[in-house]
């Protein structure tokens, strides 16, 4: 499964990518199709359809040493323009 990093960007304005996941690495659990870009809809401007992915993180991916149950997982739906591929090493 494709490994991805959530881009560590911090633009002011309406976005749907939770801040605590930015910069974190997960895998694409499934792709959900395309949806109008909420970052454009929020301002009433033309919104293009963008691919949305369900990304799975382990608690250890998100909280590192602070994770109580490191192997538990968390799924978040994140638009493709917020994701960058992480090459397998």
């Amino acid at each position: 499964m494709q490994k991805v990093r959530v881009k560590p960007l911090m633009p002011p304005g309406h976005v749907r990518t939770p801040a605590y996941l930015r910069g974190k690495i997960g895998i694409i659990e499934r792709s959900l199709g395309t949806f109008p870009n909420p970052e454009a809809l929020a301002y009433g401007v033309a919104a293009s359809d963008l691919p949305l992915h369900r990304v799975r993180f382990t608690m250890s991916d998100v909280w590192e040493g602070n994770a109580e149950n490191p192997n538990d997982t968390l799924d978040a739906e994140i638009y493709e323009h917020w994701l960058e591929p992480v090459d397998a090493t």
């Binding site: 960007l9 911090m10 002011p12 939770p18 801040a19 605590y20 930015r22 910069g23 998100v62």
Partner: peptide
Amino acid sequence: NSPNDHSPTFKLGRRWHDMGG
């Protein structure tokens, strides 16, 4: 990018409703 990051950029980009974590 952790919730404990209090830099101005982080505070601007992480709006108040985005309280996860």
